[in-house]
Deep mutational scan, measured.
Amino acid sequence: SGEEFIAMYTYESSEQGDLTFQQGDVILVTKKDGDWWTGTVGDKAGVFPSNYVRLKD
């Protein structure tokens, strides 16, 4: 389980282990570690910068 966040911006990365997503995607955040959080979008999982998302209303 985790908290749902909304992507405010598209995040694209070629780094292994990074979670890429489109603006407006719902991200289920499973771990918060400083500026880099872990989460899932659909069947993808990985880390992403926390300043790209906001808490879902």
Rank of each mutant, 00 (worst) to 15 (best):
S1C: 09
S1V: 11
S1P: 06
S1E: 11
S1D: 12
S1A: 07
S1N: 15
S1W: 04
S1T: 14
G2N: 15
G2Q: 12
G2F: 15
G2C: 14
G2H: 15
E3Q: 11
E3A: 06
E3N: 11
E4C: 07
E4A: 06
E4R: 07
E4G: 01
E4P: 05
E4I: 11
E4D: 13
F5R: 04
F5K: 01
F5M: 08
F5A: 11
F5E: 06
F5G: 10
I6M: 06
I6H: 04
I6E: 10
I6Q: 10
I6V: 13
A7E: 00
A7D: 02
M8H: 05
M8Q: 08
M8W: 04
M8A: 13
M8T: 08
M8D: 07
T10D: 11
T10Y: 09
T10E: 09
T10R: 06
T10K: 10
Y11P: 05
Y11S: 02
Y11W: 09
E12Y: 08
E12I: 12
E12W: 12
E12R: 09
E12F: 08
E12V: 08
E12M: 09
E12L: 07
E12K: 13
S13T: 08
S13W: 01
S13V: 01
S14D: 13
S14A: 10
S14I: 00
S14L: 12
S14Y: 10
S14Q: 15
S14V: 13
E15S: 14
E15N: 15
E15T: 13
E15V: 13
E15R: 14
Q16G: 12
Q16S: 13
Q16E: 15
Q16P: 14
Q16F: 06
Q16R: 11
Q16L: 14
Q16K: 15
Q16N: 13
Q16D: 10
Q16A: 12
G17W: 03
G17E: 14
G17M: 07
G17D: 07
G17T: 08
D18Y: 14
D18C: 14
L19S: 01
L19M: 04
L19E: 01
L19P: 01
L19Q: 03
L19V: 05
T20Q: 09
T20R: 09
T20C: 13
F21P: 04
F21T: 01
F21W: 01
F21G: 03
F21D: 02
Q22H: 12
Q22Y: 04
Q22I: 09
Q22D: 11
Q22E: 07
Q22V: 11
Q23G: 07
Q23M: 09
Q23E: 14
Q23S: 09
Q23R: 13
Q23L: 06
Q23K: 14
G24F: 08
G24M: 00
G24R: 02
G24S: 05
G24T: 02
D25Q: 14
D25S: 08
D25T: 10
D25E: 14
D25M: 04
D25V: 01
D25F: 00
D25N: 05
D25W: 01
D25R: 00
V26R: 12
V26S: 12
V26I: 14
V26G: 04
I27R: 01
I27M: 03
I27K: 02
I27Q: 03
I27A: 02
I27W: 02
I27E: 01
I27T: 03
L28T: 11
L28A: 12
L28G: 05
L28P: 05
V29W: 01
V29C: 03
V29I: 05
V29Y: 02
V29G: 04
V29K: 03
V29Q: 03
T30H: 15
T30Y: 05
T30D: 07
T30A: 07
T30P: 02
T30R: 05
T30F: 09
T30G: 04
T30K: 06
K31Q: 14
K31T: 08
K31Y: 06
K31M: 01
K31I: 05
K31P: 11
K31F: 05
K31N: 15
K32Y: 04
K32V: 02
K32G: 01
K32D: 02
K32L: 03
D33F: 06
D33L: 08
D33K: 06
D33M: 11
D33I: 07
D33W: 01
G34I: 15
G34C: 06
G34T: 08
G34P: 07
D35S: 15
D35N: 06
D35K: 15
D35G: 07
D35R: 09
D35Y: 08
D35W: 14
D35L: 11
D35H: 15
W36C: 06
W36L: 11
W36T: 08
W36Y: 15
W36V: 13
W36K: 15
W37Q: 03
W37L: 05
W37D: 03
W37E: 04
W37A: 03
T38M: 08
T38K: 05
T38A: 11
T38Y: 15
T38G: 09
T38W: 11
T38C: 09
T38S: 08
T38N: 12
G39L: 02
G39Y: 01
G39H: 00
G39A: 02
G39R: 00
G39W: 00
T40C: 12
T40K: 14
T40Y: 14
T40R: 15
T40V: 11
T40F: 05
V41I: 14
V41P: 00
V41N: 14
V41W: 04
V41C: 06
V41L: 11
V41E: 02
V41G: 04
V41A: 14
V41K: 15
V41H: 15
V41D: 15
G42C: 06
G42R: 10
G42Y: 04
G42D: 10
G42Q: 13
G42N: 07
G42H: 12
G42P: 02
D43H: 14
D43Q: 13
D43K: 13
D43L: 10
D43R: 10
D43A: 12
D43G: 09
D43S: 14
K44S: 08
K44I: 01
K44P: 01
K44A: 05
K44F: 02
K44E: 04
K44N: 03
K44R: 14
A45K: 05
A45R: 13
A45Y: 14
A45S: 15
A45L: 11
A45M: 13
G46T: 00
G46Y: 00
G46N: 00
G46P: 00
G46A: 01
V47D: 11
V47E: 08
V47H: 12
V47C: 15
V47A: 11
V47M: 10
V47S: 14
V47Q: 11
F48V: 00
F48A: 00
F48S: 04
F48M: 02
P49V: 00
P49C: 02
P49S: 03
P49R: 04
S50I: 05
S50L: 01
S50A: 15
S50Y: 08
N51A: 12
N51C: 09
N51G: 12
N51S: 13
N51V: 12
Y52D: 04
Y52N: 01
Y52E: 03
Y52P: 01
Y52S: 08
Y52M: 09
Y52I: 12
Y52L: 10
Y52T: 03
Y52Q: 04
V53F: 00
V53Y: 02
V53N: 01
V53A: 06
R54N: 09
R54T: 10
R54L: 07
R54V: 15
R54Y: 14
R54C: 10
R54H: 09
L55W: 09
L55T: 12
L55G: 15
L55N: 08
L55E: 10
L55S: 15
L55F: 06
K56L: 08
K56G: 10
K56T: 11
K56S: 07
D57F: 01
D57C: 12
D57N: 15
D57Q: 15
D57H: 07
